[in-house]
Design a protein around this nucleic acid. Structure first.
Length: 794
DNA sequence: GTTCGTTGTCATAGT
DNA sequence: GCACTATGACAACGA
């Protein structure tokens, strides 16, 4: 299989290069990425979408957040995941530019553009013309080139299954652009390639893009009918033998449609490369071609994928997957923190992508995908995006320029991301595999300015804590630098900062509980479904049987356990609780909330069927059910059931007093039953009260923590302002001193000589005038106040 | 078996 | 005085 893959890969590439060189227009890259995912997979390896481990990893990292499947946070969650995929796509830098240029080497018989003029757009693209230029260009060649760039650079259309929707619009557009010019030979050639794909064992089930293909077919007019028929044949897998002669050994179809190409296909790839390099001098240090990247990636291709590419600039799959894996790990770590920032980052992100994409106004993914080949070499738009996202946890330490917005704005057009990809891709395994990438993104603790620039994008609570700590550290450092603050004072201040609060912020989050959400949600649920919430109670229907009360009576048990769970999950404010692992175990849902079989609770007055009416089998079946009911019921429920109380506990607890008394008067109950009913009501109300009390207690604690946190931030801010003032005062003193020296040196006595500084000095009078006085007089003047002060002290 | 968090319950004070 | 709420304390329960 490996041999077949190698054979097919090289053959396909040679075939395409030769077709391009002889003038047959085959935008194979579009097929490679859009029409034929299997081809791309055969060449580049299985995509992450079809890789089980990737899938599980994705599920683990993303779903590990614990979002309930019914939670309304899913919208935000999927938005996050889509944005994450956008960011992840930015790391796929390993597609080399020579490959792009290779697909562009063809003569367009329709546009009648010279080879130079054809290559120039690609060069311009590769060189990184502004995105606006590219976007505004509407020439077919340019659009086709853009499609080639998109599809070639992005070997992972699998992201569409990972949540990031592939830029189908732009791709289809590019496909149409590329396919409209296809001749019958080209179509047959593609058909051959498809059959080869099938023959090579790529199962049709892994393709599964027929729907997209059908869509594209539906959009395409009749000229594509023939190719559609070929595709249909390919899908149905029939008439393969009839359509093409098959190699007896390998089962591959023999492309007889292109006579004379059989000998050319034996042309070595090195020769093709040489030919391409003669056309486009990659190796030269030209501003138009990113030579270091090309060489690096070629080296990578030679080192790590010799069997498949042999110097052809195919991206090495394994490092890429590693890099992607690392990205996913990082993103998993960032996941919680990112949920909050999404609202802001998404806007900026989408705005940037919408500005930077030409054909993907609706799909932001295509922006990050499609224009990446442009971004990598020129603009920083997507780099900003990646920086914005990637710098969420912190700034990079090992790559200070990589995720540094300041450096980002002032760095050279060669993006650091690309530099990382090119220069480190050769040893990407050793670099990213052995080390924890998360450490790369953790900031150095005292990396003052850069960290400050990064902190605004950090989400709470991490950002605030980090900001605060950095403020403290900065303040202490500045303190130590300032005059009047020695190291001891700085340490003293540090102690103050550390000990000013009896509460530890880190530990103070632990008692946080969504009980408020619990109560509020249950309140909402009850108020929407019950008449009793108007009573003033929170409507927290207490017991499990609340899930099944008489519907005609208002369904006191609007507090359904499932809804309760949903409420809990959805109400959790990520900005407040996310990123706090201490809260993971807060959402306990104990058994009193579990659902109960509604048959009895809806009609508790119905007597439990006795053994006389039921067979032994039914009894044996019912017994575990009753045991289960008993286990799930509260004690009061069991008591009420035992005492045959003819109404539900919810009514007992939540009915207003008047209605409750009326209910009691309707039913003639014994004293024991009345006592039990009143106890149930008392306990139920007390239970709600206890829950409310605990909720308030937690809210109070949280508010206090927040207050402490705010106070500490204010203190740090004030301290920082103080040191800034001290610094400015010192600077003013220095200025005054320098001015003093300047003025003093320019003063001359009657003889035209300068005053000796040891004997004279300048004195400032109260009216603003400056006098030069002998130091003896000034000393006497200064001694007099001292004496006066001493006298006052005495 | 112990620890810890959650929940229910009781007693009591306050409204 | 009654109904209700608030809260501390305790026990049961489950992870």
């Amino acid at each position: 299989m490996l041999y077949l893959k190698k054979y097919f890969t090289e053959g396909l590439i040679q075939f395409t290069i030769l077709l391009s060189l002889i003038g047959v227009r085959v935008d194979l890259d579009t097929y490679l990425s859009n029409q034929l995912p299997p081809l791309r997979e055969i060449i580049l390896g299985p995509s992450s979408a079809y890789t089980q481990t990737q899938f599980h990893n994705l599920r683990n990292t993303l779903d590990g957040y614990g979002i309930h499947p019914k939670s309304v946070d899913l919208d935000q969650f999927f938005t996050t995941r889509r944005l994450l995929n956008q960011v992840r796509q930015l790391d796929r830098l390993s597609v080399p530019s020579p490959e792009l240029s290779t697909w562009l080497v063809h003569c367009d018989p329709e546009t009648v553009v010279s080879a130079a003029s054809q290559s120039s757009p690609s060069i311009t693209l590769d060189n990184g013309a502004s995105l606006e230029d590219v976007n505004n260009s509407e020439t077919p060649t340019m659009r086709g080139g853009g499609g080639a760039l998109e599809s070639t650079y992005n070997p992972s259309g699998e992201d569409s299954t990972l949540g990031a929707v592939a830029p189908e619009d732009s791709q289809e557009q590019s496909n149409r652009d590329g396919n409209d010019d296809l001749t019958k030979e080209d179509i047959d050639l593609i058909d051959i390639l498809w059959r080869q794909d099938i023959d090579l064992g790529a199962g049709r089930e892994v393709f599964n893009y027929s729907s997209r293909q059908k869509e594209s077919e539906a959009e395409k007019p009749s000229p594509e009918e023939e190719r559609a028929e070929a595709q249909e044949r390919w899908r149905n897998g029939v008439n393969l033998q009839e359509a093409q002669p098959v190699d007896g050994e390998t089962g591959e179809s023999i492309p007889e449609q292109i006579p004379g190409l059989g000998s050319q296909t034996s042309l070595s790839l090195q020769e093709c490369l040489r030919l391409l390099e003669a056309t486009f001098p990659f190796g030269e240090e030209s501003p138009e071609f990113p030579a270091p990247v090309v060489t690096a990636e070629l080296a990578v291709a030679n080192e790590e994928a010799p069997s498949t590419s042999r110097g052809l600039p195919l991206p090495p799959p394994l490092p890429q997957l590693d890099l992607e894996q690392q990205w996913q790990d990082i993103m998993a770590i960032m996941e919680l923190q990112e949920m909050e920032v999404n609202n802001t980052s998404e806007n900026s992100f989408l705005s940037t992508t919408s500005n930077s994409t030409n054909t993907s106004g609706s799909t932001s993914e295509s922006g990050s995908v499609g224009s990446f080949g442009l971004t990598r070499s020129s603009t920083l738009i997507h780099q900003d995006v990646s920086l914005h996202q990637a710098s969420l946890p912190s700034c990079s330490q090992d790559f200070p320029t990589l995720f540094n917005p300041e450096m980002d704005a002032t760095s050279t057009p060669r993006t650091p991301l690309l530099t990382m990809s090119s220069s480190n891709s050769s040893n990407v395994n050793s670099t990213f595999g052995a080390t924890n990438l998360t450490g790369l993104f953790l900031p150095p603790p005292l990396n003052s300015t850069n960290n400050i620039t990064c902190t605004p994008v950090l989400p709470d609570p991490f950002s605030t804590l980090l900001e605060e700590s950095m403020l403290d550290e900065i303040s202490l450092l500045d303190l130590a630098m300032e005059e009047g603050f020695n190291q001891a004072q700085a340490s003293q201040l540090e102690d103050e900062l550390d000990s000013d609060s009896g509460l530890s912020l880190d530990s103070s989050h632990s008692p946080a509980s969504p009980s408020s959400s619990e109560t509020s949600c249950s309140s909402a649920a009850s108020s929407s479904s019950t008449n009793f919430s108007e009573e003033g109670a929170v409507g927290y229907s207490t017991d499990s049987e609340s899930a099944a009360v008489e519907p005609e009576e208002g369904a006191v048990g609007g507090y359904q356990p499932e809804f309760n769970k949903l409420c809990r999950m959805s109400y959790q404010d990520p900005s407040q609780f996310h990123g706090l692992p201490q809260l993971d175990n807060v959402n306990h849902n104990h058994t009193y909330n579990l659902p109960l079989s509604s048959s009895f609770d809806e009609h508790p007055e119905l007597p439990i069927p006795t053994g006389k009416k039921m067979g032994r089998e039914k009894q044996s079946k019912l017994k575990p059910q009753q045991d289960f009911l008993d286990k799930q019921s509260s004690r009061d429920e069991r008591r009420a059931r035992a005492m045959k109380i003819p109404f539900s506990n919810e009514k007992i607890i939540n009915l207003p007093v008047e209605e409750f008394n009326e209910l009691l008067s309707k039913h003639h109950l014994s004293e024991a039953q009345l006592a039990l009913v009143r106890d149930i009501r008392r306990r139920g109300k007390n239970k709600m009260a206890a829950q409310n009390c605990r909720k308030r207690k937690l809210d109070t604690i949280i508010n206090l923590e927040q207050g402490v946190h705010d106070l500490r931030r204010d203190k740090a801010r004030l301290l920082k302002e103080k040191m800034e003032f001290i610094r400015s005062i010192r600077q003013m003193k220095q200025k005054v001193q320098s001015l003093y020296q300047e003025v003093f040196t320019q003063l001359r006595n009657e003889e035209g000589r300068p005053y000796p500084p040891s004997e004279y000095s300048l004195q400032y009078s109260a009216d603003g005038s400056v006098l030069i006085m002998p130091r003896t007089m000034t000393d006497q003047q200064t001694r007099k106040p001292e004496k006066k002060q001493k006298d006052k002290k005495k």
